[in-house]
């Protein structure tokens, strides 16, 4: 099978057009921005990094999983996927196109969110971006798996919610001080990105350059690989139903 950049580009353009008019999906991007705006302007005494780190984690984890799963499930539900697959486009090209749009939109939102919170230092930005990119790739793959397992958009809620909760909330709760919870949270790769965000945005002691985060980056890379293998297995087993 050969992948064609032209066809991936065609899917990407289509998704970009579709994205602009899809309220369900746009709201997901607005939530972290809105929260950041409220925290920064109306809640005095909030630690500066709180809204930012929550927003970044939400974007990369929630948006990263939700958007591709909904895109795939909607194409199944409305039977548009059938015509795509009658064309020379392969399902892999369809996934890559959708994943790529999600990825680009997350990175753009990252930059907006960082700008909204008044900016952070260079080293911190590098950590946020590199960690964010790796976590996004992991989450987008998980989102595609959820989409593959769901028959329609409703079903993504049933299949996806437990996964979203586990990957978004558990790491957040885990970093709040309970050692038992933290143990559980360490199973999830998103915990490590949350931890990186915590270190660059809250801690004033110690070094926070990318080099200091190598173990976390390694774990994220490993998770990408695991998610990829899982994606292949699910795709082999379920196809596009």
């Amino acid at each position: 099978m050969t992948l064609s950049f032209k066809r991936i580009g065609a899917i990407l353009i289509k998704e970009a057009h579709d994205f602009k008019t899809n309220i369900n999906i746009l709201i997901m991007y607005l939530i972290p921005m809105l929260l950041a705006y409220i925290y920064n302007n109306f809640i005095p005494g909030m630690p500066k990094g709180f809204a930012l780190s929550f927003g970044l984690l939400f974007l990369v984890v929630m948006v990263g999983m939700y958007v591709p799963s909904m895109m795939i499930a909607e194409e199944k539900e409305k039977k548009t996927l059938e015509v795509l697959l009658l064309s020379p486009a392969s399902s892999v090209e369809v996934f890559i196109g959708k994943g790529l749009l999600t990825f680009i939109s997350i990175i753009v939102s990252f930059i907006i969110l960082i700008a909204m919170s008044g900016g952070v230092g260079f080293d911190e930005t590098v950590v946020i971006l590199v960690g964010g990119i790796l976590t996004a790739v992991f989450c987008i793959q998980v989102g595609i798996i959820v989409g593959l397992l769901s028959k329609n958009q409703m079903a993504t809620g049933v299949v996806g919610t437990p996964v979203y909760m586990a990957l978004l909330l558990v790491p957040m709760l885990g970093s709040m001080g309970s050692p038992a919870l933290e143990k559980i949270a360490k199973v999830f790769p998103t915990y490590y990105y949350n931890d990186m965000l915590y270190r660059v945005l809250y801690e004033f002691e110690g070094n926070h350059t990318l080099i200091d985060m190598l173990p976390e980056l390694g774990i994220l890379l490993g998770s990408i690989f695991v998610a990829f293998v899982l994606l292949l297995l699910v795709y082999r087993k379920r196809g596009l139903g």
């Binding site: 032209k6 580009g9 899917i11 353009i13 008019t21 899809n22 548009t80 015509v83 064309s87």
Partner: peptide, 27 residues
């Protein structure tokens, strides 16, 4: 060429955007 039983166009897109997608996919 296939005209299916269901009207499976991308409803949020314009006619042109729907058709251009397939032009690009078919090259």
């Amino acid at each position: 060429g296939v005209v299916p039983e269901e009207t499976n166009l991308y409803e949020r897109l314009t006619i042109g955007q729907n058709l251009d997608l397939f032009c690009r996919l078919y090259g």
